[in-house]
Design a protein around this nucleic acid. Sequence first.
DNA 1: ACGCAACATGTAACCGGTTACCATGATAAT
DNA 2: ATTATCATGGTAACCGGTTACATGTTGCGT
Lengths: 347, 347
Amino acid sequence: MATLRDVAREAGVSVATASRAINGLGNVTAPTRAAVMAAVKKLNFVPHSGARSLTRRKTDTVGVILPDLFGEFFSEIIRGIDLVAHESGMHLLLGNMHGSTHETAAAIAAMRGRVDGLLVMPPDLKPELLADYLDPALPTVLLNYDAGPLDLPFVAVDNYQGAYAMTEALLARGARNIVHIAGPKHNRDARDRQRGFVDAMAKIGGVRNPAILPGDFSEESGAQAARLLVQGQLPADAVFAANDQMAVGLIAGLAEAGKSVPGDVMVAGFDDIPLARHLNPSLSTMQVHIDRLGSTAMMMLLRILRGETLGAASATILTPALIARGTTGGAANRVAAQPATAADASA
Amino acid sequence: MATLRDVAREAGVSVATASRAINGLGNVTAPTRAAVMAAVKKLNFVPHSGARSLTRRKTDTVGVILPDLFGEFFSEIIRGIDLVAHESGMHLLLGNMHGSTHETAAAIAAMRGRVDGLLVMPPDLKPELLADYLDPALPTVLLNYDAGPLDLPFVAVDNYQGAYAMTEALLARGARNIVHIAGPKHNRDARDRQRGFVDAMAKIGGVRNPAILPGDFSEESGAQAARLLVQGQLPADAVFAANDQMAVGLIAGLAEAGKSVPGDVMVAGFDDIPLARHLNPSLSTMQVHIDRLGSTAMMMLLRILRGETLGAASATILTPALIARGTTGGAANRVAAQPATAADASA
DNA sequence: ACGCAACATGTAACCGGTTACCATGATAAT
DNA sequence: ATTATCATGGTAACCGGTTACATGTTGCGT
């Protein structure tokens, strides 16, 4: 592979001139530039980005660290990020922590010297640990994680409010015995959604200890919950799954057991993955605009990299919208969970 | 951020020794190594991967260049790649050519110096052009693209055979007037699938010029086709869409027009995206194991990077399996399109 | 014709690691 | 006691670019 030295020699100029010609710096005469360009073409020279980023101290790459790559949730996030990154000529370096805390540290460490900034989604990590792993000098935006005391910019979904709104909607539709299928114990989204459910049940439904089944956000755990429901003879007239994936498994499980949705029992999910509207009956859910989660975070990171200060915009909360579809017996109309916030509108 | 020089100074040794201690090379005494490690911990030193890769001449990163990031097809591919890459401690650098030929060149060029190898999926590029863009010195595996004369390793799906088998199955189910919804004109997969359809119709069904509607692999174009079908009064008793995404749109469009599936018309797709089995009725399709496309390619690339020669394994053809589901009125049983090939078995 | 500014180009240091090669001191062999 | 041997650790070159600074060249004003 040809190097800049080769090009310079071929064009009969110094490396400095060659570099300047290639990068379009002003102080090069037209004929010199032409000679350099000819050499570039002839030798098929492509600048070595690794070497370049060493001196420039920027890599034009952002690291994206996700807990997993499975399912539409993550692919939508990546798509959202890429959309914005691509416009600014940024590349995406994917890091996967595969659920393990130890790997998270490794994934973050491996990014040093490769990226200009980081987008991290640490759904089940304690903030203190995260602070240990992160390099304070590396601009970082958190995905779907309010770091609280850490004072890191983040974009998150208002899970509490969303779950509250969905529970309220189910109660309004006449459900009395609503069962919640929770997400992973350590997962923050899952815990916030559960809190929203519990609070709504207490305040609006007047129910103190609503039934909660365990789950882990997987389709299989939704099916599992269906079996528990049917066998355990829980008197449920509605089930609110903490995410769509589980709702999908749940519906399949209920169908197997001969239960009709929404006839025997209503079902609701959370996220609005693309699959949701294609189910039959279509799935009622809280629409999160998952791709916006990614694109908003990427836009924030870009602004930080440009040296702007985010100020109030450093904490962006996306409010999910209630989408009432077939599984709650409703028409397919959409209603905002609450007036869109300024943050949401700017996204 | 601390550099190796800082660490060496702190530990009272030279940079060479520090480097050796950190990388576990033999010629360092235990006390010296301990001193270095203490300095590393104290200064929070993390080696700068950019600088390291410059001398080592390897980056532990592979570039992945895809035409788009939309839909489950691509997210499944990335997942498959990541699965294998992660095991070998490799990172993934995402490049997106966003459909444009010009951007493809840019995406590939930008990878120089950043990656050890390339995984490229160029569905609508001419082989000659591709050869121009690719760096012959950079190990490259093509995804879903038989480069023919280029002699590059690739892993592809037997689209022709798959489409042939699906058409045969539809005919066996009693369909007489089968309409095909084609993919993008320049897309190779799409063309091969169309050829398979046409040939099967001719050889088995004895039909010379079967009806073919245009499409572009998008859900919307499937819906569009549904409108054409209904308005144009085409006497179709089965529709074979070139991919699942279009089949989904098609089914929605047919439902809108009051047509029942599979009662009035059978529907089949291609790819077996996760969504397929969740539709109601569930979608009959050719199962491609999309993630394997990615993981197989990544495994091939790793072997090349290790210096092994692939030999016959450099061309891997995955044979899709016929999955008969609800939209063709069948039970949900799976039948192999044909005996699995050696290549398929080894994947 | 001379002095000086403005501009083109070259030299070399530097980014942060790795590593070939050499120097040192300790130990072993004679 | 003297020298050969070797493990350990230091010096400096190098990877492939960028860029501060030095140098050379041209053109303008007087």
